[in-house]
Each structure stands twice: as C-alpha cells, then as structure tokens.
C-alpha cells in the first residue's frame, strides 16, 4: 500500500514542538548571560546561586514540597490499595457508586477541586496551611493510586489465593505473604505517580495554601510571574527535570516488570 508521508511529518514536527521549550530552558541554565537573548558562555553560576543564603526560602519550599509529597503518597497508597481491592473483588451497587467516586476527582478540572476545598475549609473555619494542602493532595492522589493498583489486579491470578488457603494459610498470612507482595509493584508505581502529581501540583495548592506554606511550584510561579531571577528558574527547572526523569524511569521499570511477569 502506498502510504502518505503526512502523518510522519506531523509526528516529527510535534516532537520538535514538545521539546523546544524544555531544551531551551536546559541550555539556558548554563548560559552566562542574565537575559536569554544571547549566549555569552558556559557557566554553572546559576546552580551555585541556588545555594546562596538569600535563596534559603527556595530550600524551605522544597522541603515542604517533599514532605507533603511523601506523606500524601503514603496515605494515598493505603487508601488506593484498599479501594482497588474493593472494586476488583466485589460487584455490588456500593462498588458502582465507589467507582464513580474514584473517577470523578480524576476527570474534574483541578481548579474546581481547589476552590471547593477552599470554600469548605473557610466554611469550617480551618486554618489554611501545610495540613490543608496535605488533605487536598491525598484527595486527588488516592484516585490515581486506585487506578494503577486496579490495573495490576486485573492481571492477578486468583488461584494463588485459593492455593495458599488450601495449604492452611490464615487470612492474614494470605494478605501479608501472597496478596501484598504480588500487588507491591502496582502499589509502588501508584505511589510514585502520587509523588510526582503532588510535587507537580500548582492549582489546587494555590487555593488551599496559607501564609508561610509556600511549595516549590508556588515559589517558581511567583518568580516567573514577576520575571524575577529567570536564570535561577532555568537552573531549578533543570534539576527538577532530571529528578522527574529518574523517578519516571524507575516507575516505568516497575510497570515493565509487571507486564513481563503477568504474561
């Protein structure tokens, strides 16, 4: 069949489109010029500047971001695993409701989730800060963990549970020694996804944050908005990119492991 070249050309152009801004940013993080209009030479000074005492707030924001990401992923891993098991093993009316409830936070625009949580916290008189950010992040991460673990469960060989029971394992032993080890790659992959989503989130955090509880995306946003310290943003972003790639690469390996074993 004679096939048109057009799709391949569109594909190539889109790849360029996807990478140009990111590469521009990475290259410029090593640019000596203060403004990115010209290339004046290679430097690492913007990376060094991140360690200046005057940029301590960046590190505080980073610490808070990581603290929130680690704790919200940990809670979401538990919630998501429980609800994935419920959705997989039971076909009741309750689970149909549960299914809708899990998917809505994934679909709805994050802006709406942020504003509704803010209004809820204000109505209750809750002080906004790290705790409210944490609650918001768990709320959207739990659904994503559920979806990932549910995918892992779909390739699950139910007969191993029956086999373990036949061999005299108690319910608790089956959970701890059979189900959890088999689900572990899915749970970890879901946790890594939560971690990235939490670190990535700007919109929801923006609504539910309080004074003094700045996260890294909020900090970067205000620097970008006021065009302050643009070379520093390039440097932070490059570090951010490298770390994200490492996490994604790790989580991809986990899911690949899963597909290899289930076939």
């Amino acid at each position: 069949m004679k096939s048109s070249r057009l799709p391949a050309i569109v594909f190539a152009l889109v790849i360029v489109f996807l990478y140009v801004p990111i590469l521009f940013l990475v290259v410029n993080s090593f640019n000596e010029a203060r403004f990115s209009s010209t290339w004046t030479g290679f430097t690492l000074k913007w990376y060094a500047a991140l360690f200046n005492p005057q940029n301590r707030d960046l590190w505080e924001a980073t610490q808070r971001t990581l603290l929130i990401a680690v704790s919200s992923s940990a809670v979401s891993m538990i919630l998501g695993t429980l609800s994935a098991c419920a959705l997989h093993w039971y076909r009741t009316k309750l689970q149909r409701l549960n299914y809708g409830m899990i998917y809505l936070p994934v679909i709805i625009p994050d802006l709406l989730m942020g504003i509704s949580l803010l209004l809820f916290f204000v109505a209750l008189g809750v002080t906004l800060g790290t705790v409210t950010i944490l609650i918001a992040h768990i709320t959207f991460c739990a659904s994503f963990v559920t979806v990932v673990v549910l995918g892992r469960l779909q390739g699950f060989d139910e007969s191993v549970i029956a086999a373990a029971r036949d061999l005299g394992a108690t319910r608790w032993v089956v959970i701890r020694r059979v189900i959890l080890p088999l689900l572990a790659p899915g749970i970890v992959a879901g946790g890594l996804l939560s971690f990235t989503l939490s670190v990535d989130d700007y919109v929801i955090t923006f609504f539910v944050t309080g004074p003094g509880s700045t996260t890294l995306p909020l900090k970067i946003y205000s620097m970008v908005k006021h065009s302050r310290e643009l070379p520093l943003i390039n440097a932070i972003s490059t570090i951010f990119l490298v770390v994200t790639f490492l996490i994604v690469w790790w989580s991809q390996n986990l899911t690949r492991d899963q597909t290899v074993r289930s076939h």
């Binding site: 594909f11 889109v14 790849i15 996807l18 990478y19 140009v20 801004p21 990111i22 521009f24 940013l25 410029n28 403004f35 990115s36 209009s37 010209t38 990235t196 670190v199 990535d200 700007y202 995306p217 970067i220 946003y221 970008v224 065009s227 643009l230 943003i233 390039n234 972003s237 951010f240 990119l241 994200t244 790639f245 994604v248 991809q252």
Partner: peptide
C-alpha cells in the same frame, strides 16, 4: 516513540508554561 511523547508531559506543569514564557519573552532569543 511513545516514551518520547510522554516524557515532556511528566515534567512540572508550571515549569513547562514558564519555559514557553521565557522562550517567547519580548527580550528573548
């Protein structure tokens, strides 16, 4: 190729928008 398409999507959202702002900046290259 699927990975190549997904990878930019895994980078921080604010950073991606910021990258465009810096790229298209009036004083930009």
């Amino acid at each position: 190729l699927v990975m190549i398409v997904i990878v930019p999507f895994w980078t921080n959202f604010v950073i991606r928008v910021a990258a465009w702002r810096i790229l298209l900046h009036p004083e930009g290259m």
